[in-house]
Write a protein that binds this DNA or RNA. Structure first.
Lengths: 295, 295
DNA sequence: TGAGCGTTCTCGCAGAGTGAGAACGCCGGG
DNA sequence: CCCGGCGTTCTCACTCTGCGAGAACGCTCA
């Protein structure tokens, strides 16, 4: 059973900034797209990430990659080393990631807080249904992937790593969560999140989406057939707390080609079983943070 | 928490610089101990860690905990949110950790890079010997815990988490690694790292330590009996690469009381077995980064 | 209705961060 | 042996950035 590795760089969601075309000229001040923010902090974090991406780097590499002058890079590198976000491998003349990042990662997982019983249940879902298996929860106003179990034979959908929280309209667990919101919450949510087209069959009109959500609400199961990634299908069932509110969702993904009608029925059954088990956990006490997802 | 370099030595706590006459000002703060560094960055990271420690926090909590004025805290919080190191749960008026921290944690683990075959071997060591099991490697000039397998019945020693790299003189795997260094490397290492007393039996004199290291080098196994944590004993065996150099170490920890002579023999056997298996992996190709530990 | 909190803005000042440049030690190659 | 290149640290004067008191706005609760 693997926890979570993989995950590489995802394209930074390019904001629709005006002036997308930088005229190649103007070496002086082409005014980068970025909003103000605290410049020093942004530079520092950029350096940290540069070191992370290339699995360690020399100061010069960072300087060239980011276009920051060398003295600045050294200064900020040292600040990061001092706080244990980086280590300086003096022998190898390299900077690599520091151990605080592990501790922070652990803290993050603790904040999301998926109990072991739920983890094993998702593991069972993976084994029984022979698919990648997911657990998603509300976090604040977002819907986020909180746990994944997959295997070489049944790998996760590449973007669906821990922390994924986009494309709610185009994922099975996203539909479950949208269907679980009050209509005002849903409207507000969709006012902020566009119905981006991802494949030929992605539902990009609210009308269509609402119609499906109504159906999801009654049937209790959401399917998503190649609306997110071509050739792949997902399915999900909601998880409810003691008050009957949807607080999360168990889900699977599999190649569409492998899904005979019979297999679909089996999967639905496994999803409902898993949902029941997980819901049972959340019904019995232990509902830690207020999951009422105020939006 | 590092104790290393000389920079601390150069600056006496209260520097009696020329111009001692401060213009009558400064009745309040006599300037805290901290060395310069990039102030903004330090503040920002302090905020990040404050949020991590308390599992999410409001801006005001952070402000009070760290003594930074509110507008500053908000500004830096936003910088962190913008870079995905924090999320702002607007519904709950809280800031919590962001998903980039997971990605950075994963990158760190990838940089340390313990292959799965080694992981399973440490798992087996845990099961067979019925103890917490560890794998440690050189990283730059340091010796760091790279992987741990434990269980409720056989928990790890509390400080021995991933990333632990102190007290080399008082841990079994540390002794293995010290024994594996050239004498110049060892001397240099010990010039920088004090032989801190941790328990009544910690070896704090180089003499004593060197004597034991010589014995470790010949026997191939290091024991550490309550020199690190009272009541707990550790043992370790080295892992060698194709060139015969020590590049890591497998280790276990257990309560001293549970270690009959027979059990000690069993544990030594299991450690040697594990070491052989792991060494085999590092012998066959795959010796990625130059582990020659230049110091 | 008002107090308290979360959150964002404004704005003038001070000082922090900046970055060209030089310096130092170390290495490997000519 | 000396030179050139690299990693690393320091200096220093200038400027622009981050600072933080304070006020403002909206919300929730009593």
């Amino acid at each position: 059973m693997r926890i979570d590795d993989a995950s590489t760089l995802t394209r930074p969601s390019a904001d629709p900034a005006p002036v997308p075309a930088q005229p190649a000229s103007a070496p002086p001040a082409p005014a980068p797209p970025r909003e103000p923010g605290v410049v020093t902090v942004e530079k520092t974090l950029a350096i940290l990430e540069a070191v992370a991406e290339r699995g360690g780097a020399t100061a010069r590499e960072v300087s060239e990659a980011l276009g920051f002058p060398l003295p600045t890079v050294y200064r900020l590198l040292q600040a990061l080393v001092q706080s244990d976000y980086l280590v300086h491998l003096t022998g190898q003349h390299r900077f690599e990631l520091g151990y605080k990042l592990d501790r922070l990662g652990v803290s993050l997982h603790r904040q999301i807080g998926i109990p072991t019983s739920v983890r094993t249940e998702i593991g069972r879902l993976h084994t029984l249904s022979q698919t990648a298996a997911y657990f998603a929860v509300y976090r604040g106003a977002d819907v986020v992937v909180a746990y994944v179990v997959d295997s070489p034979d049944h790998p996760r959908l590449t973007p669906l790593n821990f922390g994924f929280h986009e494309a709610t309209h185009a994922t099975a667990f996203g539909k479950i969560m949208l269907a679980g919101m009050s209509s005002e919450q849903r409207d507000q949510y969709l006012d902020v999140h566009e119905l981006t087209r991802l494949t030929a069959t992605t539902k990009t009109r609210r009308q269509d989406l609402y119609a499906e959500l109504a159906q999801v609400a009654t049937s209790g199961v959401a399917w998503e057939i190649e609306e997110f990634v071509p050739g792949m299908t997902c399915a999900a069932v909601g998880v409810r707390n003691g008050a009957g509110m949807i607080i999360g969702s168990v889900a699977i993904s599999a190649p569409s080609a492998e899904l005979s009608e019979r297999r679909q029925r089996d999967i639905e059954r496994h999803l409902r079983d898993a949902s029941n088990q997980v819901s049972r956990y959340y019904r019995s006490g232990a509902l830690r943070r207020a999951n009422t997802a105020t939006l």
